[in-house]
Simulated assay, not measured.
Amino acid sequence: MSSPFRRFVQIGRVALINYGPDVGKLCVIIDVVDSNRALIDGPESVTGVKRQAIHFKRLSLTDHVVKVPRNARQTLLTKAVTTADVKTKFANSAWGKKLAAKQARANTSDFDRFKITVLKKRRNHLVAAETRKLVKAANKKK
């Protein structure tokens, strides 16, 4: 019987911080402190996350893994993250696209929301008109 889990806490696992001052930023697990905490690093020059111990509840594990040794130094970690192109890969994933769309919606102005509402009404009107045509055509065939 196979395990339902696919993402494991491991050295080099890329994670998304889901709580605290660095929420929404990517980091790399570089060591496991105990059963509740991990030592993470951004590195700061790439993602803006400083090296720190963080609780597992504040991390969401991604599918991406960077090949780094345990307690990797800043320069080695920076090189590994940039060559693996972690930020671009995450941004192109479904999860990253969903977060980007959520961010874009949060940054809209009142007028942008009004324009979206008008476009939705227009689309719904066109869909309803096509549906009426198809139903009328189907009823004529009977």
Rank of each mutant, 00 (worst) to 15 (best):
residue 46 V to L: 12
residue 56 F to R: 11
residue 85 D to C: 08
residue 71 N to C: 14
residue 86 V to K: 08
residue 54 I to P: 02
residue 52 Q to R: 11
residue 52 Q to W: 00
residue 60 S to W: 06
residue 82 T to S: 05
residue 43 P to A: 02
residue 48 G to D: 03
residue 67 K to T: 15
residue 41 D to S: 11
residue 53 A to G: 07
residue 81 V to M: 14
residue 79 K to M: 10
residue 57 K to N: 13
residue 62 T to A: 05
residue 63 D to C: 03
residue 86 V to S: 11
residue 78 T to R: 02
residue 71 N to L: 15
residue 54 I to K: 14
residue 81 V to T: 06
residue 60 S to H: 08
residue 73 R to W: 09
residue 69 P to G: 02
residue 56 F to Y: 15
residue 55 H to A: 09
residue 85 D to K: 15
residue 52 Q to A: 02
residue 67 K to W: 06
residue 51 R to L: 05
residue 84 A to I: 12
residue 65 V to D: 04
residue 43 P to I: 03
residue 66 V to Q: 08
residue 60 S to G: 00
residue 69 P to F: 00
residue 47 T to R: 06
residue 68 V to E: 08
residue 71 N to P: 05
residue 45 S to R: 09
residue 77 L to G: 07
residue 57 K to L: 04
residue 83 T to Y: 07
residue 47 T to F: 13
residue 49 V to W: 08
residue 71 N to M: 15
residue 80 A to P: 08
residue 43 P to E: 03
residue 57 K to Q: 06
residue 46 V to N: 09
residue 84 A to E: 15
residue 60 S to T: 04
residue 59 L to T: 03
residue 70 R to W: 02
residue 65 V to Q: 02
residue 42 G to L: 04
residue 71 N to I: 12
residue 67 K to F: 09
residue 59 L to S: 08
residue 79 K to N: 11
residue 61 L to F: 05
residue 85 D to G: 11
residue 78 T to N: 09
residue 85 D to Q: 15
residue 82 T to H: 01
residue 54 I to G: 00
residue 82 T to L: 12
residue 58 R to F: 12
residue 65 V to M: 00
residue 68 V to T: 12
residue 80 A to T: 05
residue 46 V to I: 14
residue 71 N to K: 15
residue 47 T to C: 05
residue 62 T to C: 05
